[in-house]
Structures are given as C-alpha cells and as structure tokens.
Design a protein around this nucleic acid. Structure first.
Lengths: 364, 364
DNA sequence: GGGCTGGCGGCAATCGGTTGCCAGCAGTTG
DNA sequence: CAACTGCTGGCAACCGATTGCCGCCAGCCC
C-alpha cells in the first residue's frame, strides 16, 4: 500500500531528464513538441520515460498552460435515466478528443448547482449544462468566465443544443389525430422548465393546425410518482389522449390509470417524450417521441470543445437535433369514451368545428 | 465571452495580498491555517478576497500539496441503472467531505477502464471501483499507487464493500420455498463476475439447507435483451421458479416469457437482484433482493476518504451491507406446471398446498 | 576565412498556491 | 535590565510541468 516516491506521484520529467542525460525542457518538448527536438534524442527520451513509467502530471501541466483537459457535465440529477445516454454521448465525445469528462450532480437544486459550478470553475476548461436549474442570467455569469454549452434549453448569448421539440410534438399530435383523437391533454412538467413551455406551446400550435382541441393539466414533478398522482387529477374528466412532458411522467400516468381501472391504450392513449430505456420495458410499452439523447450529449460536448480550442466564440442560433416518434403499445385507435354515450356524434354534435376537422383527422 | 484576466482564472493570492497589504503567504494561511494568523488580519484578508471574488485554484493547491480533493468513481457503464443510486450515494459522501467526485466510464471494457485509471492516476486522490472488469492483480497494481476501494467484489488486500449476497439469496430462496416451489433455476450473469459466482454458490447452499433442488442456466449478458434470450433457453423445460443474477436479466426474462405465452407469476415465479428503479415499474412488478445501492456508494466513498486522509491503510475484511427482499408481483404460489399432468407427485399433492396458501396469495 | 543561417539543447521564469524557517516585537520572568 | 518565549508576518524554496530566449555548433555561401 505504500505509495511510491516521497509524494503521491511517480517519476517526473526531472527524473527522466537525469536518466536520459538531457535537460528537463528537452523531455517536455520530446512529448509536447515532437518536431522541436532531434528525432534520435526524442526517441531516447521516450524510451527512458517508458522504462521509468513516466506519466505527465496533468495538474502541473494545467497550471502552466491554464488548460486542464477536463470538462464538466452538470446534470440536474445523476440518477435520472434521462441523462444516461446523454452522459454516454458526452463521455464518448470527450475521450475521443483527449478530454476527461467530469460529471457533477446538481441534486435538483439551483443552489447546489451553482456551488458545484463555482468549485469547478478554476479546474475545468468548460461546462455542459444539462437541464440547468439556474436562471438565464446566472448561466450567463458562468459563461462569461468559461466556455459553456447548455442542453435542452435556450439561453440568449449562450450556445445551446436542443431536440426538435416542436417537430416531435407535432409528430405525436399527428399520430394521435390519425388514431381518431380530437381532444388532447398535455400533462405538464415543472413550470420552470424551458422544455415544458416549449412543448406545451408546440402542442397548442400543432393542435390548432390539425383542428384539435387541447388542454393542460399539471404541473407535475417529472418523475414516476408525479405521473401516478396526475392520474388522480385526470380521472375526473377522462381524456382519450394524453401527451406527457416526459417518459417518467407518462409511465407514472399509465400506472396510476391502471390502478384506477382505466385501460391504456383502450380507454386512454398516452404519449411520452425522450424515449428513455424504461419506455420500452413497461407494459404497455410507451409510445414516445425519441430524442437523440446520445447525440445531444456528444454534440454539446463537441461544440464545447470547439469553443475551448478555438478562441472565437461565435454564438450562433441553437443547434436543433431531429427527433422521431416511436410508436409502441400505449396509443391506439380512439374508442368512444365509456363515460359519454357517444353514438355517431363525432361529426355533428359538439360543434361544427369538430365536424370539419374529423375528416382531416381521418384522412391521414 | 471574453475570459477575464490574461489567463483562465480570476484573482490570485498575489492580487489579494497586494490589495490587503500583506504577503501572499499570509493570504494562503488566512485560508488554510485559520489559527496561524492574527484574527483581525485574517478577517481583513478574507474580506478583501471576498470583494475581489477570489477563489483558490485547486490545481495549484494540488500541485504543492499532492492532494487534489478529487476522487474518481469508475463504473463499468454509466448508463446502467444499477449505478444510478451508487453514484448518488458516492456523490453525497464526497461533497459532504469537501471532495469532488469524478465519474469515469469503463464502457464494459477492462482495457478502457485501465486507460481511464492510468490517465486519472496522477490527478485524483483515490478510486472507487464499481464493477471493475479488470483482474485482481491489475487492481492491486493500482491500489499500490493510490488508495482504492472496490465495490461489489472482493479483492485480496484491497478494501471492499459488498452487499450481503448470501443473505439476500437465502431470503429469496426461503420466499420461493414458502410459496411451494421445490426446484429453483438460477439464471447466471457474466462468468467473470465475482458477484455471479457468489450468488450461485449461495443459492446452492440455501437450496441444500431447505432441501430444494437447483440448476443453473446461462451465462447471459446481464441486460434486458440477455434476459429475453434466456427465456428461449428456458422454455424447453420450464421451471416454476427462477432467481436471476440481476434485475435487468429478470425483467428481460419476464418479457421473453410473456412473449412466449408463459404467464408470470402464474406459471413461473421470477426473482431479481438489486432493486433498480425499473423493477417497480415493470408489469408484473419485480420481486427482488434490494441491495442498499445508495449506501454502498456512500460507504465505499467514505471508506476511501478515510484512507486518503488517514495515512494508515489497514485492510480489514470486506464490509458487508445488509439487503432485504422486496416482495412484489413476479412471484406467486406454485401451481402445477402446465407441462406436467401433476397429479399428486410431490409430497403433499400440489392442490392441497395450493389451497392452503392461496388465501395468503389473495391477501396481498 | 568571416559571416550567416538553421537546428538543437539548455537556462530560467512562470503558473498559483503551500510551508519551513527566520526575524521582529511584545510580554514575561528572574 | 537581560534573556527567554510566543505570536505574527515575510522570505523564499518548492510542487511539475511549459516556453521564450539564448547560445553553441555545423554547414554553407561568398
């Protein structure tokens, strides 16, 4: 267990230099400036270094170059499966470029997040903020000091990467409309969430275009229990189709509904968002808008690295990543709602408006 | 976007020293050796530092103290939900002690893991190895250079933290035995897994004690698809009760079985291990041995920090953490197997047993 | 042969803290 | 009053790399 050497580390460039009979600067250059030293010398140095098991101390290097080759990915909750693939993507992009990814957990708290950021600030080359709980201005403060890319959110003047929320929602709405639903309920996530606002607005737009009506319930905490609770809220006036802010909420909703004897998708169709791993595992498997989680993480990271390496920091428009709808078992053809007698009403009764659109809906 | 100052960082102790009219060493001591400087001076320094927004550069500190206050948690796959709670626990224990947790992904490869370890070695104060894919001796090599704690595995001469595998398995076996099952099938995980060997051995022991017979199938890759495939393997000679190496495998098995028309728990009872979040979400909800994932992460981390701070590195026996059985919907009273005519072959005539306990089943 | 050029290696400063050692000073004691 | 002690603050040497600048030497040209 004895740590080798007086201090923590192994041999230094000084040890290598002595053993190779050269100056420390030569050793340094043999590694960092390949062409700068004579090939033969470099080779000898490298061999000696190898023998000694020399490994450059990244801390020392960071101190003099002001580059640590460390970047931090800050997520609102490490245990949230939503981040799993994002982390993987970021990890991959980081290592592929010779950087080490440091993962920090904000524990769903802006305060904690801020603390972590401050602590990390001098030690990393930049940040990817996934689902930040901080205010736009707080984010900009950080972005003034180190390169920052935000994920799943748009902050003015800070580069961001987001999934195509409007497109995804539209796809979901079209799908439900195609199944004969003409009223949609949106189960909202946290009010503070940028994505939630975006999705609700997109849902309204898409619904309007397709002449569907929509309402909104919530907000709910965006996890499974939150969805279960929401089932209670809904059971008063049962909708035929629900689009949930995210998959956890959708999964919880399905469970809550089932517990109340409501069958999914027979009585209610449910669509989630994100396509986390569990979405395919639950019963019925969840129809959901698949966000390219892995790609999001990788893209944001590559973007960050470009900022870290290039000096320029052009802040273009947000990078929007395409999504697709994954149709699984939680959505189905609308049946007349058990609560309403629902004889051949669709066209005529509630309003002329309904009538005019049901043909639309039917045609696709 | 302009990074303040010539270099990445903000003000240094030198700036603070000048502004406060003291020497840099005094500034340093005002922070790190509270009693060492006059209280009034310290206060003044601290105020000036505050005004300037001074923040100690952890890299510089690390360089001279050979302590980075960074510890790494290396997991075999960041996206594996098994690690979610472990990471959280570790994160909590680390921050609570003023350390920063760095999470590294081994991508299921001993080679990648080794690479990450080597790269991190000079930069961190120690490692927690969760589910290492490396050999015992490779781990010992690392442990010679920096403090290491291994999780879910026992390596001679290296401190380790493990769940009570034998206890958990015994609890599961007793549960199944109590439900009338008298033959158990163990669905094995990776052969290289220490935990897998442990669990299989424990199963044999427990089965022997309770006079049950047991067999083993697999190995399977310990994920959901692996479990689905295993269902095919099993369907030839359908068992009445299966204990899977972990929850993912169990979940996959249930899905695979269902796809083949086998009903769980009516035809086959399935027990998992770990109690990952998804275990409660699937249908039927999974009966499983709940490992104290959060506590494991926290305990291992605290253990590591003790090693980092205290000089001594006594390697006691592995730390074993208690587990408990969570009974959910995937296990039930044994019924006569549909493949066997099942007249009164076994001890009591299954029907009689069924009758006696079906009240039990009904009650939950 | 003198002067120039280019290649190569070394010196020493620097990054931002930490810390051993010393010096000044006040207060105490004999 | 001299000597001693304890409290404070400063000086300067690190930690382990990187890098600007300089000097040496060989080769080349005129």
């Amino acid at each position: 267990m004895a740590q080798r050497g007086r201090r923590g580390g192994g041999p230094t460039i000084y040890d290598v230099a002595r053993a190779a009979g050269v100056a420390p600067s030569t050793v340094s250059r043999a590694f960092s400036r390949p062409g700068r030293v004579n090939a033969a010398t470099a080779e000898r140095v490298r061999r000696v270094a190898d023998d000694l098991g020399y490994r450059a101390n990244p801390l020392a290097r960071a101190l003099s170059t002001a580059r640590s080759s460390l970047i931090a990915l800050v997520v609102s909750d490490v245990a949230n499966p939503f981040y799993s693939e994002i982390v993987r993507g970021a990890q991959a992009a980081a290592t592929e470029n010779g950087y080490t990814l440091l993962l920090a957990d904000a524990q769903e708290s802006g305060r904690v997040e801020r603390g972590a950021l401050e602590r990390l600030l001098p030690a990393v080359d930049g940040f990817v903020l996934g689902g930040s709980r901080m205010s736009d201005s707080a984010i900009r403060v950080i972005a003034k000091q180190k390169p920052v890319v935000v994920l799943n959110r748009v902050v003015v003047d800070v580069p961001s990467v987001v999934p195509d929320n409007p497109g995804g929602i539209r796809r979901a709405v079209e799908h439900l409309s195609g199944l004969g639903h003409h009223q949609l309920t949106y189960l909202a996530g946290p009010e503070a969430s940028w994505a939630d606002g975006m999705r609700w607005r997109s849902l309204q737009d898409a619904a309007a275009d397709l002449q569907l009506r929509c309402r909104r319930v919530g907000p709910a905490t965006p996890d499974v229990p939150g969805g279960v609770r929401a089932a209670g809220e809904l059971s008063g006036a049962l909708p035929t189709a629900v689009v949930a802010f995210n998959d956890q909420l959708a999964i919880g909703l399905v469970r809550g509904l089932s517990a109340r004897g409501v069958r999914v998708p027979r009585d209610v169709s449910v669509v989630g968002f994100d396509d986390i791993g569990a979405a395919a595992l639950v019963t019925p498997a969840l129809t959901t808008v698949a966000a390219p989680l892995h790609t999001e993480g990788a893209t944001a990271t590559r973007h960050l690295l470009a900022m870290v390496e290039g000096v320029q920091s052009r802040t273009g428009p947000p990078l929007v990543l395409p999504v697709r709808l994954v149709e699984r078992g939680s959505t189905a053809q609308r049946r007349r709602n058990s609560t309403s007698p629902a004889s051949g009403t669709t066209k005529v009764s509630p309003s002329a408006r309904n009538a005019s659109t049901s043909t639309d809906a039917g045609s696709r």
